[in-house]
Nucleic acid binder design. Structure first.
Lengths: 173, 173
DNA sequence: CCAAACTGATTGCATATTGCAAGTGGTTTA
DNA sequence: TAAACCACTTGCAATATGCAATCAGTTTGG
């Protein structure tokens, strides 16, 4: 196994799209970020076993390392469990919310997305930048210790909508 | 050489982010789309030689095939030149503008982007969705034969800003 | 108290993808 | 009519991915 170790930026060019792709342009990095943002997975094992797509452990380990090196995630030891490690979003990671929202919006409009997995994308699309902004504030509370934002939880609303859609499509199946 | 041939969707899951990544999640696909959108490159040779990053011809051929299969680009023979082939954006491809704008915006805020290559991202970021929408209308005119939108050209403005920034940074160098 | 389960990973191996350089068969240009 | 140009393709080496097994230490349950 030879896996990207240093995750040094390759620096093919100073173009912002290129540089973003050098960090995030592969099949798994944004999947990991997605699961942390929308699924609140904070531990290696959760990311490994509770994702739809089934990432393998070596790839997950490599991507977590890469994302930490790129400043998208931070890695901290869990003080109450000597083996547990927590992965959190940094501000840089939280600012991927609009990117993911647009990418999800594009997917839901143009690709064969399932009803239950598309519901969050549709809500984010309808809510637009104001909703993304509220969600990002909530993530700052969950991951960075910022003060808890007032009002209803976007995270909970997204989750509830997903669970309702999943229950519904389970019934009609 | 074994290169992705069929470019069949792998269908790891019906999640919109995952499906988008199955189409676009690699180091080159969005680079190609970027050059077509912002650089108006329409031919294989232009894409091959005039890009900052230096894609190789086999990868370019494969990605163009993939993007055409995915309905992001269309491929047409040039009637005045039996060998020339034109690649154009489809509506699906044009709708990647907000995705690229957000990705570029994230890159310009968080990665070591060069001044001249970052200027377009900054303009798109400031202009926000209204500017993106005008730009998309212009691309519909350029690629889909829609009526030419009134008012100043976003494409030209972006290009002019880039050339000015490039000239400036050449002077101070 | 101790075995079983759980923790974040790592290793070996097979396969798939990427990158580079050269080449293909044809067309257009000077 | 030769040189340049056209969209690719091919061969090969290097790199990345995917799978299954495994690791060493930690915590939990009986």
């Amino acid at each position: 196994m030879v896996v990207r170790q240093g995750s040094t930026l390759q620096l093919r060019s100073g173009c912002p799209i290129n540089l973003s792709l050098e960090v995030l342009g592969d099949r798994w990095s944004l999947i990991v970020v997605r699961d942390i943002i929308f699924g609140d997975r904070r531990h290696f094992r959760e990311l490994l076993t509770q994702s739809e797509e089934g990432i393998s452990s070596n790839i997950l380990a490599d991507r977590l390392r890469t994302l930490v090196d790129a400043g998208v995630l931070s890695r901290t030891d869990d003080p109450r469990h000597k083996q547990k490690v927590s992965y959190s979003l940094t501000e840089r990671g939280i600012q991927l919310v609009p990117v993911l929202a647009q990418l999800a919006g594009w997917g839901v409009r143009h690709l064969p997305v399932s009803d239950e997995l598309g519901i969050r994308a549709r809500i984010l699309d309808e809510g637009g930048p104001p909703l993304w902004s509220r969600f990002m504030d909530e993530l700052r509370w969950m991951h960075l210790g910022s003060p808890r934002p007032a009002g209803p939880s976007v995270f909970d609303d997204l989750q509830a909508a997903y669970l309702a859609a999943a229950a519904k499509s389970a019934r009609t199946r």
